[in-house]
Design a protein around this nucleic acid. Structure first.
Length: 466
RNA sequence: GCGGGCGUAGCGAAACCUGGUUAUCGCGUCUCCCUGUCACGGAGAAGAUUGUGGGUUCAAAUCCCAUCGCCCGCGCCA
């Protein structure tokens, strides 16, 4: 007999079926035992009369989270026993044969609740159990749906998903890199990408024109409720486009995604409001304003584009640095200022961020595709000829072989999904997140490696050097 | 690096300010009873070095010092 999922049982009344799943709850009435069986599709009440089954004694021992195979008859419940709150509450399965596939220890915490009440350290140590709770299961399922929708939507519009390397090169500026020592080249290190920024621009040079990737990114900085050491971006880049084209595509994608997958959500304003950085700071005091008219409404989504960011700002040391991305283009009307390195503080970038309910969920720009103009950016930041060549020579060279004008965006996918799921922390929408200090309690990472591994890598550990 | 909060059974909490008999409660666990429950119910039981170390005191979960751990925020995050 072939296994059937619980969600498909409503049409099987009267038939004998084979179920697989976990014991969600057990209600033992002595000669009669009820088990709520849980599988990936739902829950169902199974009625067991131990005396009537071959292995009746063993069945009495069944507890929460045991894994079972049950053969039984699907029955319509008598009127008085229908549970109106349960989607499968009008039916039940009467067990004819039960095969205990695996026993289980008592779970370390109650998985029938939301989980907010349990300490994060315990939850993360037993993440595989934690993920069984309905809330997290729903988050992970909906995350999948969001990603699938994005993939299908972009595919239909001619985008290609292209993978870019995880082992890449450390870059100056920006966040701290996670580094990986090289065995074949002792003393040298790869860096994990902070974003696929450079690769996606090089793909534009390669003529792919429309690229996207569900891309894992790594930044070795302290975490927050909306920040993890590794996180996922929707990374996207297009050739021969202007600011308006990228904004329009992304806005349409977001609206379609929400209207299709989450019809209960209300988007406060379509088209999304656009404000300049200057307006945003003056009016709201932040570049990611929360514009919701009713902040208690869990289903209200207020998107907002923030545009016209200053290109440069002064660091504490008084040097110029970029506010968002060195590869951004200035607004077309400010290109002259950049080339002349004139009035630097007032050069605006063709940069656009998108905020949702007070969180930055994405940012992008039209890129600077003229090598001589890109060079000016690095000059303003105080890079000398040599360090420009060392750090960005490959980009400048690539740009000299015919790169089209291009621009793109990157969404913080974990953040977007956590807001859509009304979750206070992006951990809740990531299957295996890290702790507040970047550790994995379950795998016990990071961990020391063997002296043999270190020797091969040519690395010596200095003890107590914090 | 800085600031704030927290640490008491498997899980969640109370008692701490104002030291005092056997550290309380809920969930879970174990044993027994129960053929219509759905967070089943009933009877009983076990389970705690009060994060760790030290100090004050006749007496410390409680006061003091140190230390470790977790969470949130700031810095940081092209």
């Amino acid at each position: 007999m072939e296994r059937i999922l619980i969600k498909d049982l409503n049409e099987k009344v009267g038939e004998t079926v084979l179920l697989n799943g976990w014991v969600d709850v057990r209600r033992d009435h002595g000669k009669l035992i009820f088990i709520d069986l849980r599988d990936m599709s739902g829950k169902l009440q199974v009625v067991i009369i131990p005396k009537a089954l071959e292995n009746g004694e063993a069945i009495k021992a069944i507890r929460s989270e045991w894994v079972l195979e049950i053969e039984g008859e699907v029955k319509k419940r008598p009127e008085s026993m229908v549970n109106a709150e349960d989607p499968q509450g009008a039916i039940e399965v009467e067990a004819k044969k039960i095969n205990i596939l695996n026993e289980a220890n008592t779970p370390p915490f109650d998985i029938s609740a939301d989980g907010y009440e349990v300490g994060d350290d315990v939850r993360l140590k037993y993440r595989y159990v934690d993920l069984r709770r309905a809330r997290l299961n729903k988050n992970i399922v909906n995350r999948h749906k969001v990603i699938k929708f994005i993939r299908d939507y972009l595919d239909e519009r001619g985008f290609l998903e292209i993978e870019t390397p995880i082992l890449t090169k450390s870059t100056p500026e920006g966040a701290r890199d996670y580094v990986v020592p090289s065995r074949l080249h002792n003393g040298k290190f790869y860096a994990l990408p902070q974003s696929p920024q450079q690769y996606k621009q090089l793909l534009m040079a390669s003529g792919f024109e429309k690229y996207f990737q569900i891309a894992r990114c790594f930044r070795d900085e302290d975490t927050r409720g909306d920040r993890q050491p590794e996180f996922t971006q929707l990374d996207l880049e297009m050739s021969f486009v202007k600011e308006e084209d990228v904004i329009a595509l992304n806005e349409a994608l977001l609206i379609n995604l929400i209207q299709t997958l989450m019809p209960e959500k209300k988007i406060q304003q379509i088209p999304f409001l656009r404000v300049t950085y200057k307006e945003a700071m003056e009016k709201y005091g932040t570049d990611r304003p929360d514009l919701r008219e009713n902040k208690d409404d869990k289903n209200l989504l207020a998107f907002c584009w923030v545009i016209d960011f200053p290109f440069f700002e002064k660091t504490d040391e008084g040097k110029w640095t970029f506010t968002h991305n060195p590869f951004s283009a200035p607004k077309p009307e400010h290109m002259e200022k950049l080339m002349a390195k004139d009035d630097i503080a007032n050069i605006l970038a063709a940069q656009y961020d998108i905020a949702l309910n007070g969180f930055e969920i994405g940012g992008g720009s039209i890129r600077n595709h003229k090598p001589e103009a890109l060079k000016k950016v690095f000059e303003i930041m105080g890079f000398n000829e040599e360090s420009i060549t060392n750090n960005f020579g490959h980009m400048l060279e690539a740009f000299s072989y015919g790169i089209p004008p291009h621009g793109g965006i990157a969404w913080g996918l974990d953040r977007l999904v956590s807001i859509l799921q009304n979750e206070p922390n992006i951990r809740e929408v990531i299957a295996f997140p890290k702790t507040g200090d970047g550790r994995d309690f379950m795998m016990e990472a990071p961990s020391e490696i063997s002296s043999a591994q270190l020797k091969e890598l040519g690395i010596e550990i200095k003890k107590n050097s914090k």
